[in-house]
Design a protein around this nucleic acid. Sequence first.
DNA 1: TTGACGG
DNA 2: CCGTCAATGAGTCTC
DNA 3: GAGACT
Length: 418
Amino acid sequence: MDAGGGRGQEVEVGGRRLLVRNLDKVLWPEDGYTKADLISYYLQVAPVMLPHLRDRPLVLTRYPDGIHGAHFYQKDLPDGTPDWVASVPFLSPSTGRVVRYCLCPDAATLAWLGSQACLEIHPWLSRTSSPSEPDFAVLDIDPAPPAGFAEARRLALALGGLLERLKLSSALKTSGATGLHIYVPLLPGHTYPGVREFVRRVAVLLYRTFPRMVTLERTVRRRAGRVYLDYLQNVRGKTLVAPYGVRPLPGAPVSTPITWQELIRVDPAGFTLSTVPARVRAVGDLFAPALGLGHRLDFALLPIGGLEPGRPASAGLRGRRLASPPATEPADSGPASSRPPFRAAGPGGLQPPGRRIGGHGELEPTASQSAVCGDLQPPPQAGVGPPQAGASPRPGPGGAPPQAAGRRPATQRPAGPD
DNA sequence: TTGACGG
DNA sequence: CCGTCAATGAGTCTC
DNA sequence: GAGACT
Ligand SMILES: [Mn+2]
Ligand SMILES: [Mn+2]
């Protein structure tokens, strides 16, 4: 019972033995990182990464010839996949084909993904047990050049303040490029359209508060210099790169969980395939809040006067409505044309965009935005915290976040995938 | 990337 | 052991 | 159908 008849070197992981071809192939030419380095990285972060992959269908991107070579998305597992690699079949609604989505419950599978030159692992926002019920709401913060991480950070801080006001815990990570990802853990029973509508409203709120810094534009050329709040990521089958996932960019940056306190001083480019393992050993899993106690989103906007217009089913809760309104069809934001108009209601109602305070900086909010800008400070360790380390001003040896070393040269980094 | 085939 | 060749790989929403 | 997203 060897690991197949092909060529390659044996790698043993957790009792599994697999044959890996081209272990010394360089995948990140600028940095010299090889497939062996990738597999080594995966195995080192497996303890904190696996809990975030478990039970979720995975979308993979493969770069068999390195980050500058041709790449492709892979959903259906290829022929030749070892029989011990777990998968879950789903009927693709649009194509009518059965797709066997890869699952990754253990380190051996992670190593195998490395052997396939899977440089990106994108877990669904829902689990195999209820594929249409996301258990995260994701706030995808995408700065459009010349905006960069600094702008994304400002938005994230505002969002963090808002989430704190709404009593929603969250987990924060870098995207690996210049963006940021915030996950809000959800109780069972939410729908994708409902969650999407919630995040859309949050995005609109931020847009009205920071009309010069935020954009909701779908056309990339109209986004220039602003930060795109991509609420449309909350869709079945759409994904974000996994926490601790490496990116196919020079430097091999990693989508790295950070605390709200660290956000102010980190340089996301400092989190890489070579630095993150030590950090993980020092600070543990800073993304744990994403798997912690979940929330329900219906009425979550109530504290800031956001009633749920129309759609009694509210934020897409289905089933187990506690003392909820009468059952109706699941909320559905649908195409913009059929979407119920956003109704600003209640005290401190929302204002249309365009209002801005003359003579003030980019960050200056419009009046009446106390809901969001009342505080621009991060929530105090919202949610769980790891066994201390990165949260203190003087983080442990390995856990020190990369400082933004003074003013960085104008040549940031080529804006990569977020 | 893999497996197949040939040297 | 090696080199070479063929076949292969996603889906969703907006405008 | 093109454009954007992962
Ligand atoms: Mn995005
Ligand atoms: Mn992003």
